[in-house]
């Protein structure tokens, strides 16, 4: 089985890569939305992400990957208390998935053969404590979107069907990608993503040549290529793990909090979610850079990622929200 294209080997696209690293450091930032043209490496990056994520400890046979036996849902009848290390789940939500498949439903096989009512967990259960990836998220059917919004908000999946009354934890990082030409995303869903990135094909010829060369090497000289880049991925993973530790010790001054608040008021972003996300992202970024205190420069660097999708749209502004954020960041924080 061929491993996916390594994360470190992706050329350029620094915003997208940074956003993904930040959510890996602090999953509570709440997911990444990647919007961009065809052939810019959106899905390649998401699939490569799995290799970067540190493994998690989970109870054996637990369908929702609980960390300790006490967290296992009752209906699962988990008898073992043993735990094991598993890779962080990265679950694909395919576009045509039915509601049953997403939330889980009656286990047909057991009902049919043994006459037992049993619950068969769905994708949301599998994604607990991990990532849920939706490609072409803007084409997702409305009723699935409603369902996801509900679960993403409460962190809990509740199934009430005939005879079945089941609830289980469903905390996951939502990663969505899409092509804006295919349609817009509902503002409510847009909000649920902590960070958003616009990607475009690199315009620099040398960068483009490098993309082609690496892809070619991956196809033709797979073993040597993976040997080289998996080492880089491992270094990055170590950096993420150490950043998670640094994060707990990171100091945030009141002055920085004021900066963040002022920035969000100036931008007119709706609700407090923007402020919270910006703060978390900036902290994760500082930890990633191994700094001990949060400063203005951290906020400046991640402001566009955290706020761009929270502004009201202006049809006459061709430059896009990213430029607007940058402009106001310069006003508030100084260039």
């Amino acid at each position: 089985m061929k491993q996916p294209f390594p994360f470190s080997a992706i050329v350029g696209q620094s915003d997208m890569k940074l956003a993904m690293i930040l959510t890996a450091i602090d999953p509570s930032i709440g997911g990444v939305l990647v919007f961009g043209d065809r052939g810019t490496g959106k899905s390649t990056a998401v699939r490569a992400l799995a290799a970067l994520l540190p493994p998690i400890t989970a109870v054996k046979t637990c369908p929702v990957n609980s960390a300790v036996p006490a967290d296992c849902p009752e209906w699962a009848n988990v008898t073992t208390k043993e735990t094991h290390e598993i890779p962080t789940p990265l679950i694909d939500l395919p576009l045509g998935a039915s509601e049953d498949r997403v939330t889980g439903a009656l286990d047909i096989e057991k009902a049919l053969t043994k006459g037992e009512k049993a619950f068969q967990p769905g994708l949301l259960a599998q994604a607990n404590r991990g990532y849920l990836y939706i490609d072409e998220v803007n084409l997702l059917e409305d009723h699935i979107v409603d369902l996801l919004l509900d679960v993403a908000q409460s962190g809990e999946n509740v199934i009430e069907r005939e005879g079945l009354s089941i609830r289980h934890a469903a905390r996951f990082v939502l990663v969505g990608s899409g092509n804006p030409e295919e349609g817009e995303l509902r503002p409510q869903l847009l909000d649920r993503f902590g960070l958003s990135v616009d990607v475009a094909s690199p315009t620099d010829i040398d960068e483009r040549v490098e993309v082609i060369k690496r892809r070619d090497a991956y196809d033709t000289d797979y073993t040597a290529f993976m040997l080289r880049w998996q080492a880089e991925d491992a270094t990055l993973r170590d950096r993420i793990i150490s950043a998670r530790k640094t994060l707990t010790k990171l100091k945030t001054s009141d002055k920085t909090l004021r900066d963040v608040a002022e920035l969000c008021v100036k931008l007119g972003s709706d609700g407090l979610r923007g402020e919270l996300t910006l703060l978390k992202a900036a902290r994760a970024y500082a930890a990633y850079r191994d700094d001990t205190a949060l400063t203005r420069s951290h906020i400046r660097d991640v402001a566009a990622l955290a706020l761009r999708h929270r502004l009201r749209r202006d049809p006459l502004d061709e430059a896009g929200s990213g430029t607007r954020v940058t402009r106001i960041v310069e006003d508030v924080l100084g260039a």
Binding site: D37, G39, S201, P202, R208, V209, I212
Partner: peptide
Amino acid sequence: HHDLVTLAARLGIDSLRAPIFALR
């Protein structure tokens, strides 16, 4: 590699799949 990418850029082809396909 360089020739293919430059040519794609001159023809206004944005997607990077094109030069990869050409190479293959």
